[in-house]
């Protein structure tokens, strides 16, 4: 994936789901909300590692976490994969890049 696409909202979702552990987290919380420690157990990774993955997933809107009492619960964010609704933003940045490439092309011509 190019750097330009990686910086778009959809690109961040693609990047987040490129990691097998994060895909496993998304799949598990899509069935029901889970605490961080219950998430970490079967994945065989530390709570710190889970927290890092959750930050990535929260950052691109795929997963939401909330603290209830002493337990942090993770759930799927139904808004997160509106890849298509992100198309409005995608369109604009796509055209920004196209017009820049048009400028590059014109600059090459003499």
């Amino acid at each position: 994936m190019s750097a330009a696409l990686a910086e778009t909202p959809a690109g961040r979702v693609f990047h987040a789901l490129g990691d097998p552990t994060r895909r496993a987290i998304v799949e598990r919380v899509s069935r029901r909300p889970l605490s961080v420690s219950r998430l970490a157990g079967p994945l065989g990774i530390t709570l710190t590692a889970v927290a890092q993955h959750l930050r990535v997933l929260e950052g691109c809107g795929l997963v939401r976490t909330e603290k209830l009492g002493r337990v942090r619960t993770c759930r799927l964010d139904p808004e997160g994969l509106t890849l298509v609704s992100r198309w409005a933003d995608e369109c604009r940045s796509l055209w920004e890049r196209r017009l820049d490439r048009l400028g590059d092309l014109l600059a090459e011509e003499n």
Binding site: P78, L81, T82, L83, V84, S85, W87, A88
Partner: peptide
């Protein structure tokens, strides 16, 4: 953007 762009059906389908 059509209903697919923002509607719950598309969101669910996605």
């Amino acid at each position: 953007f059509y209903e697919g762009a923002d509607g719950p059906e598309m969101r669910k389908g996605g």
